[in-house]
Nucleic acid binder design. Sequence first.
DNA 1: GTCTATAAGGCGATAGAC
DNA 2: GTCTATCGCCTTATAGAC
Lengths: 196, 196
Amino acid sequence: MKTLSVREQLLEHTLVLVRQRGFNGFSYRDLAERVGVKTSSIHYYFPTKEDLVQAAVTEYSARICDHVRHIDTGLPPEDQAREFLQPWLDSAGGDRICLVGMLSTEALLLPEPVHRVLKEFYRVNETWLTRLLESVQAAQHKPAALAPQTMAQAVLGALQNGLVVARLFGAPQRIKAAADLLTVAVSGPVVEPVPA
Amino acid sequence: MKTLSVREQLLEHTLVLVRQRGFNGFSYRDLAERVGVKTSSIHYYFPTKEDLVQAAVTEYSARICDHVRHIDTGLPPEDQAREFLQPWLDSAGGDRICLVGMLSTEALLLPEPVHRVLKEFYRVNETWLTRLLESVQAAQHKPAALAPQTMAQAVLGALQNGLVVARLFGAPQRIKAAADLLTVAVSGPVVEPVPA
DNA sequence: GTCTATAAGGCGATAGAC
DNA sequence: GTCTATCGCCTTATAGAC
């Protein structure tokens, strides 16, 4: 377990605070207390709060998008979908939603460079899902009811709101509706296991 | 066109401000300037900011839920779905998202009485969609790939995030993926009109 | 790099005159 | 009901010592 530099600690705690409370929901004081420095030290690394959030969203988007890009396209579609869904299922029901979902909701408060990263996140994830659904559709005889891109956007949206609702209700399983939507699209009807 | 009381004006402008910027994204000063009163007058009607947001979310949820409850259940499912979708399509691409979607994202900043209204909003909308999908499914020979309740949650989630993304991209048509998901679920494949 | 000290202004909220 | 005036605190941000 590596020791993080102060800058890295600031970034990690910012990721947590934004995912919990949003851009306007935490202060330099909150962040300083968590890392164990004074607020003036934060300004040394991130001159303004916009610099801080820009670094946070860039780091977060890179992590998720890298995860998606590294999914083995040789795997069966069901397995690719499972890999894609993993980070979403992992965070469902905790106190953190997707950082991109949070900041997109607060978009009117944020500068344009942040918008660019948010849009890129949606583009990368939707494009990956579209390709997956296209490959499934190409292997079938009947065309799907919804175009791959349309289903991709619907799935990603359902996942984003799924995290929000799972947290609101304190019910991790509420992410399952969105996950099932993707699962069905790549591999047919979901059959729940029957209790013995 | 009726003249609104000061209290009604405060509530209407609060609905707008929350849908644009969220609970922490506007101040009593912002609201006072818009209505043309001093900030102390706001406290006369709404002693605390939590009182203000409680009144706003209650009013907003009542409006949408009443709209949903008044949809004629005797209509064909496609027409019921169209009615349901109308307020979502109307606000897509503007600067306002769903107030419930906004406050749900900010849930950790808000008191429990607000949570109760947010959850009730999801319950009412999901229940209505579930019933609609059940009625469609009962009239068909094959069972749908997804259970009605699951599809209902996915559709509502896709709509919420659809508003967020439509605003972020400045592209009203981005709400269509979510709308198509519901439309297909109640009436089969969506066929785009071919340009002449 | 990290600190102390402080600036300059915003915030929600209250007291009391009218 | 609406105002003026003000309180106490929080906010982001900066200057300058160490």
